[in-house]
Amino acid sequence: MTVFMVLSTIAILAALGVVLFSSPVRSALCLVFNFFTLAFIYFGLKTELLGITQIVVYTGAIMVLFLFVIMLLNLGGPQTWKERFEFRTVLGFGFGFALAAVIASQVFANFQYFDKPQAPDSFGSPQALGRVLFTHYVWPFEIASILLLIGIVGSIMLAKRKL
C-alpha cells in the first residue's frame, strides 16, 4: 500500500510537471519519470511483461524520439514563446476538474469493493501473454503489425525532404 502511494504520488507530480513546466525538455523529462513509475505500478499489478514493455517502448523509444525532435527543432531553449494567460486556460482547468469529478463519482460509487485480485498471479508472464497473443488475438496482432509498417512508411514520407 505504501509503495503504491509513493509511486502514485511521484506519477501524479510528474504528470503535473508535464503540463506546468514551460520548457518542453523539462516536460519530456517529467513524462519519462511518469512512465517509469507507471512501469513499477504495472509490476505491482503482476503484469511484469507489460511493465517492462512500458519501459522499452515508452521511455526507451517514444520519449527519446520526443527529445530528439525537441532538440532538432531547437524548441527547448529560453527563446521559446511564453504561454499566454487567456480564457482558454481557465476553461481548460474547469473542464479538467469537471471531468475528474464525473469519473471520480462513478469510480467511488462502483469500484470501492473490488479489493481482491481475481486474475492468477501468473497472468502477466511472457508465456501466458504470448500464448493468447498468438492464438486468440493473432488477427489483431497482424493488423497491428501492418499499422506499424504504414507508420514507418508514412513517417519516412513526411520527414524526408525529397524521396
Binding site: 508535464v18 482558454r88 471531468l99 469519473i103 471520480a104 469493493y113 473490488f114
Partner: peptide, 23 residues
Amino acid sequence: NNLADYLTLGLIMFSIGAVGVIV
C-alpha cells in the same frame, strides 16, 4: 490496494492530460 486506488490514479492522470491538451 483495491481497484478504486488504481482507477483514481488513472483518472487523475487522464484529467491532467486533458487539461494539458487544452491549455
